[in-house]
Design a protein around this nucleic acid. Structure first.
Lengths: 234, 234
DNA sequence: GTCTATAGAGGGATAGAC
DNA sequence: GTCTATCCCTCTATAGAC
């Protein structure tokens, strides 16, 4: 899988084009969702024709798979590293909430996709089912410790509430950014659970094992298209 | 506006067809969202051609407006009746949560539409902005009283959290209905706020002033198409 | 009130030139 | 590696017959 951190100079021309295509797909899917964006839209944004895009990816669905995979390469280590403390997991999620408030496009991508993907026929359906399973599991473990001997909510319910709160807030925030403070509202929920975190934003990205948790998407990808086989340049 | 309670016998043929079209549109939008459903899909489901649909509605957008208006005629009195007590408002919302768990299509409609409609260019954008404004306002007033002299969360934040929780839970529930109990999880949130409600479902629809709050959609409709002018039969 | 026919735009995907 | 050209499909919307 392409390493987004590798300097562009060291990439082949094909790799750079693939990168540009995924950048464009990310931005356009973010704005309007997967189904409403055409290959021609993506191609125009990336500066080539739709046939050019289909030289690098076998079909439209493959571009979506790559967009999601790349997000996971960046974020998965923050939440799936098994070496993470329970507190660090919550802090890292809070950091993501914080960063989201600066990247409305990214938020829009996940809001649109997670809604579309509730349809079992959607190409990203399995991906989102898997995603929420993994996140709920991690959070349930963390809350089991962090909630101490509280009896309500249960760690399982707290995990569902915590994730639901973030998703729901994103919709309200996209509709009216001025009236919703995602970070403060999530913090307030955690305080209600007796979990105190610093009021100030974290700013810098938390340090992580960059190799951790990269395979959240792996199963879903394999069921559809092997991303590795779609690069005719290597 | 058509009264959905009036017996079908007393409707003209045109009214019945319009009703069937809106029923079909509701079901299909619920399954796949607005943009992914075509007029031909709606027409086929309602048992006529797409040209037949366009005889009753000037364009696709008008069907969406009518679908949303009809939902509001049913649900708005439950949350916008000014004669409602603060406790009754929360109970009515809980009743809606309860009913939602029996109507996945309806849940899917709002999940898909509220995501699509975060785009300012979406025909239902203004509608959803308005919808959340009104709901937050009602809930803020209710929480101002119900939270007593708690200082955290503020009534405004509680209103945002309460709505966000419901929206986010719907996504998780649509993805994996077996692992999410929407009613119990919302109840647990309210208990955390010190608001105790009966553990058992409410079952029957709460009684309301059926005329209350019908104009949530009115402004948004007027800005696009006057629904009254689209029925050539009257 | 509903249909067929059609216009005109745009979608995904493929073949083959360069 | 990228293009043009093309196929074939589906979309929204309109015109006009019945």
């Amino acid at each position: 899988m392409t390493d987004p951190e590798r300097p562009r100079q060291r990439m082949t021309k094909g790799e750079r084009t693939r990168q540009r295509i995924i950048d464009s797909a990310t931005e356009l899917f973010s704005r309007s969702g997967y189904r409403a964006v055409s290959l021609r839209d993506i191609a125009a944004h990336a500066g080539l024709t739709h046939a050019g895009v289909l030289h690098h990816f076998p079909n439209k669905e493959a571009t979506l798979i790559h967009v999601l995979s790349r997000r996971d390469e960046i974020d998965a280590p923050l939440v799936l590293d098994p070496g993470l403390s329970h507190r660090a997991l919550i802090e890292n999620i809070l950091w993501i909430v914080e960063r989201n408030a600066d990247t409305p496009g990214l938020v829009s991508l996940y809001v649109n996709l997670s809604a579309e993907a509730t349809d079992p026929a959607h190409p990203a359906h399995k991906y989102f089912v898997q995603r929420y399973r993994v996140l709920r599991e991690s959070l349930t473990t963390a809350f089991t410790v962090l909630l101490g001997n509280r009896d309500t909510p249960s760690p399982q319910v707290a995990a569902q509430q915590f994730l639901a709160l973030q998703d729901g807030l994103q919709i309200q925030w996209l509709l009216e950014p001025e009236v919703v403070n995602m970070r403060a509202t999530v913090l307030s929920y955690l305080r209600g659970l007796g979990i105190e975190l610093p009021e100030e934003p974290i700013l810098r990205r938390p340090e992580t094992d960059l190799e951790a948790g990269h395979d959240l998407m792996a199963e879903a990808s394999r069921r559809t298209i092997d991303p590795g086989s779609t690069d005719p340049d290597r």
